[in-house]
Amino acid sequence: MSLDADLAALRKIPLFRGVDDQKLRLLAFMSERTLFDAGEDLMVEGDFGDVAYIILSGQADVLINTPTGRQKVASVKENDFVGEIAILINVPRTATVTASADLVALGISKEHFFKLVSNFPDMGVEVMRALAQRLERTTREVGRLRAQLPQNG
């Protein structure tokens, strides 16, 4: 339970890859360690949330509502970052995340994140760079998938 352990977890997140340690440490100090019991929801699909979680220990299921009920689509574990879109823009959660075992997470709230970004614009630039990389990858993926589609006018 120390700041350094949290810093180590933050450093592994791609979104924060380019951000220097000092500022990540500040982000670690401002974020809150939160405990979840097995079965407790970290977030619920459709809710508006303002906290993203880095899982420090334990695991959780990612569930999506379908006409036939909730379907598990993935599971997340240590060092995974969930709900990160919520600290960037206001959108409803796209999935439900439920702890499948007792879980410890580091919660980063939108408010804290934005305060840091507005204090340190270079941090924003690094986050933007990471997002752009992700966008580039996604675009390429979409292009590749589109090429695979049968040509039917």
Binding site: L3, Q22, R25, F29, K115, L116, N119
Partner: peptide, 20 residues
């Protein structure tokens, strides 16, 4: 020491310091 490292050396502004 930690406060100086977190807030002093990063050059955080007064409002950030005041809040946290």
């Amino acid at each position: 020491e930690t406060m100086i490292e977190l807030f002093g050396e990063t050059g955080a502004d007064a409002s950030l310091i005041g809040d946290y």
